[in-house]
Amino acid sequence: MTDSPVKKDSTVGVVGSGSFATAIVKMLLENVHTVHWCVRNEFVKGAIELRGHNPTYLTAVNFCVKNLKLTTDINELVKACDVIVLATPSIYLSDTMDKMTCGYAGKIFISAIKGIVPRVNDVVAHYLREEFQIGFKCQAVLAGPCHAEEVAMERLSYLTIATVEDHVAEMLQGLFSSSYINVHSSKDILGNEYSAILKNIYAIGAGIASGLGYGDNFTAVFVSNAIREMETFLEGIYEAPRDVNESAYLGDLLVTAYSLFSRNRSLGNLIGKGYTVKSALQSMNMIAEGYYAADSIYNTSQEKALETPIIDTIYKILYEGKNAEKQYQKLTTILN
């Protein structure tokens, strides 16, 4: 346990039962006595209660069940908690939030989701504000290079918590900081959220390059171009004081583009090796958020007339059925 302003009985809950949700529960239990956890279904709930670990994701992480309050009802969790971490895949968020009928005024909602909400074709921050009237003062975003698998192994990891309120940032730093989690704060909610989405798309691109047989030299050039393109996109949609070389932007891009833990890189690698997009998606046992986000991000880039050749290339491969090898031959002529 670490010294923090957070009390042992702070009411905090996590919605979602995938790998990152499981890692977040582990992080929180370093600082609070009880974590409320809304999981997908009764099978997952029963398995955790019986065996003390998630039956599907990060199965090596063992929990003391008495420190968990498990439920499948989001209303039960929201009623009990002051801080709610949303950690479902973006494509399931609307279905999950539609079930929330209880009051939630004044509660803090943290997005640990790195994808676009399909129903509104927008980021989680805007979805919460427009659909549920949860303003930015009651929101935060978890960002940064922090693979769930490394959290499970308690390898030193870094989180950035983006929120506009200083007292919320301080409270959340106390919730998440530990001997293996370093936490920094930012006020760039939209920039952190969009960069987390963009890096997944670029990671698919890095994976495609690997599958096609491009080596480390090309990947280094690809990533250096990607961070500049990310900056172009972020400035095009929301100007703010930011340094894209910080870990929440560049660091997260690097780890997602290079790591073998990266599901988005894995998806791209399969496509580069010749799998169809459909077959590559079907072979994945986890959601690759970058695939679902690429359509929305490409359209946003087109609407704002931004120069984003990497995003354009990946979109054409994923959604227009363009040949990956030919598209990358074109891309190599404009990267520098």
Rank of each mutant, 00 (worst) to 15 (best):
D122K: 05
A21H: 13
P89A: 09
T332L: 10
S224M: 11
M284I: 12
I311E: 05
K66W: 06
D243G: 00
G268D: 07
M230V: 03
L331D: 06
G213R: 03
A143E: 12
F132V: 05
G46P: 00
V25M: 11
L212I: 11
R129Y: 12
A203M: 07
M286C: 06
S279Q: 13
K69E: 13
Y104W: 14
S4E: 05
D312M: 00
Q302T: 01
T2V: 13
P118C: 11
L50N: 12
Y319L: 01
E170V: 11
D9I: 09
Y194A: 02
V25I: 10
N336I: 08
F132L: 15
M284P: 03
I201G: 07
N75G: 08
H36G: 05
I317N: 03
E303M: 13
H147K: 02
T11E: 10
K8D: 07
M97Q: 07
K304P: 01
T332V: 15
I134G: 14
G236E: 05
I74Q: 03
A169Y: 02
L86K: 12
Q139R: 04
K114N: 06
A280C: 01
V120C: 11
L68A: 04
R155E: 06
F233S: 02
G144F: 08
M286K: 13
V124E: 09
V277T: 04
V123W: 00
T333R: 15
F20L: 05
K114W: 02
S4G: 12
I113S: 11
N41E: 05
T59M: 13
S195W: 02
G174E: 07
A21Q: 14
G321D: 01
F218Q: 07
Y194F: 15
R242F: 02
I110P: 04
T72R: 04
A257K: 06
D73C: 10
E231R: 13
H36A: 13
N200P: 04
G213D: 02
V164E: 14
E149W: 06
G106K: 10
E76Q: 15
G135F: 07
K316A: 10
T11R: 15
A226N: 04
G18V: 09
T72P: 04
L253P: 14
K304V: 02
L29P: 12
Y238C: 12
T300K: 13
K7Y: 08
A143V: 07
K8F: 10
H147I: 01
Y57V: 04
C81G: 05
V85F: 15
L70A: 05
P118M: 10
L128M: 15
I48V: 15
M284K: 06
S266D: 05
Q133W: 08
N62P: 00
T313A: 09
D9H: 08
I310A: 03
L93Y: 06
S90N: 09
K69D: 11
L198V: 03
L28Q: 09
S210A: 14
Y57Q: 00
